[in-house]
Design a protein around this nucleic acid. Structure first.
Lengths: 236, 236
DNA sequence: GGATTTATGTGTGATAGCGAACAGACGCAA
DNA sequence: TTGCGTCTGTTCGCTATCACACATAAATCC
């Protein structure tokens, strides 16, 4: 069973570790369930824990005011929350909100920084992840500037799908609107368009993707660009 | 004279070093002049040198296609180009374009990574700078999404002013448009509005700021937010 | 089972910014 | 002086998105 975990690790950032390193790390983690819409931290908060999602999704949000929010990063089992600790700053740069419940590994920040010093491979992997986060973040910023809501919605749904590893998941239009930084009505229109094209079905937060190829065709190239960046840097 | 340099260092990231560290670093730097509109690197390029501007400005641009560009970061004597080497990745995440000529310190990438290992203070300072870059980048992304051209232009002019350390500088509306990710005509309109308010004067690329307070009042809060982030993290 | 909450759909007008095309104005160089 | 390149100003129709207000429908709760 442990072998199975190593071949298909619970979190991709823990791949590539030696068996010994992996086992030691696992003794430091606790597995928890995050609560939907829970605000793990606000920008400027002290970082107490780092989180490695297994099935959950954490959204990084930049918050200007009540109706000016923007998703600037999404963390699933391909990433982690708290990687900026690598830079020697122990305050959170952004608000982190739980977008999807599910099992999550958690470790105290102090333990994390200590573990980094124990394993060069681990540290190297996380530094690379931080580089990828930076790149993707900028790609999303540009995406926000130039692409229309429907493209961006398609992109967002694909990113969620990849992280929940399922064709169907639960998310309200209101949440999607917050992430895209647009009005809910804007999401309603875009989602309706996707439904008419038989690409998704959507009812009261229950969303199902029927046509993956169609969705990728509609989404802007940013989806693919971000995936390429991830695999180029982290699976090198 | 050397003492003067230490009190008012050529580049702010070199402040806080001990005299010995500073002197050793300076032997590794060469001082060069960057050419206007020179593309130092494109996204994905190998990083050969790191740059510490003294009077110059380097703009980080994300490039989708010919007419879809966005400034995602600006580097003057408060920062450096190449800080992502800290993350152990030696390819550039973004295109870097010279926006203002002027003296610049340059060091080979290999020397830089070697020097990082020699001085913990230096490394710590640059890690913090990378954290600040990340934060500012996200702030700008949100700014692009929510604020109107005139606010953003005001913000941009203030950022340039701070880096050239002068009330007047040369930049075309075309360049400004590229950085803001809008049409030149959009900049023309916004710049005209600022001129009517007697805040700036502008003729064929020669721009002069007459009313700093007025310009800050018009610019969005992102300007101040970014400055606060910088001083909170780097001057701590 | 009725009331309330939550989630989605619709409609109307306003507006910021876009694309394209063109006109003037300044500056340098032959 | 003429010409050409660069920079800025102006206009027109168009579209995506916004703000606000209200309608409908499913889920949940007492």
């Amino acid at each position: 069973m442990q072998l199975k975990q190593r071949i298909s690790p619970v979190n991709n950032l823990l791949a590539g570790l030696t068996e010994v390193e992996y086992q030691r790390l696992m003794t430091e983690f606790e597995t928890i369930d995050l609560m939907l819409n829970e605000v793990i931290c606000n920008a400027g908060d002290q970082i107490h824990y780092v989180y490695f999602p297994i099935k959950s999704i954490i959204a990084l949000m930049n918050h200007l005011d009540a109706d000016k929010n923007l998703e600037v990063g999404m963390i699933g089992n391909e990433g982690m929350l708290g990687s900026t600790l690598l830079l020697g700053v122990n305050t959170a740069p952004f608000r982190a909100v739980v977008q999807n419940t599910g099992a999550t590994l958690r470790m105290p920040a102090a333990t994390f920084t200590h573990e980094l010093q124990q394993s060069l491979v681990f540290e190297q992997q996380l530094k690379r992840y931080l580089y990828v986060s930076l790149s993707q973040l900028v790609q999303n910023a540009t995406c926000n500037r130039f692409h229309v809501i429907e493209e961006r919605l398609a992109c967002l749904l694909l990113r969620i799908r990849d992280r929940v590893q399922s064709q169907s998941f639960h998310i309200t239009q209101e949440s999607l609107a917050q992430m895209l930084g647009v009005r809910r009505v804007g999401v309603t229109m875009a989602a309706k368009a996707l439904q008419h094209k038989k690409i998704i079905s959507y009812s009261r937060g229950n969303l199902r993707i029927h046509d993956n190829v169609g969705l990728e065709a509609i989404s802007c190239s940013c989806y693919q660009t971000n995936n390429e960046t991830y695999s180029r840097i982290l699976n090198a």
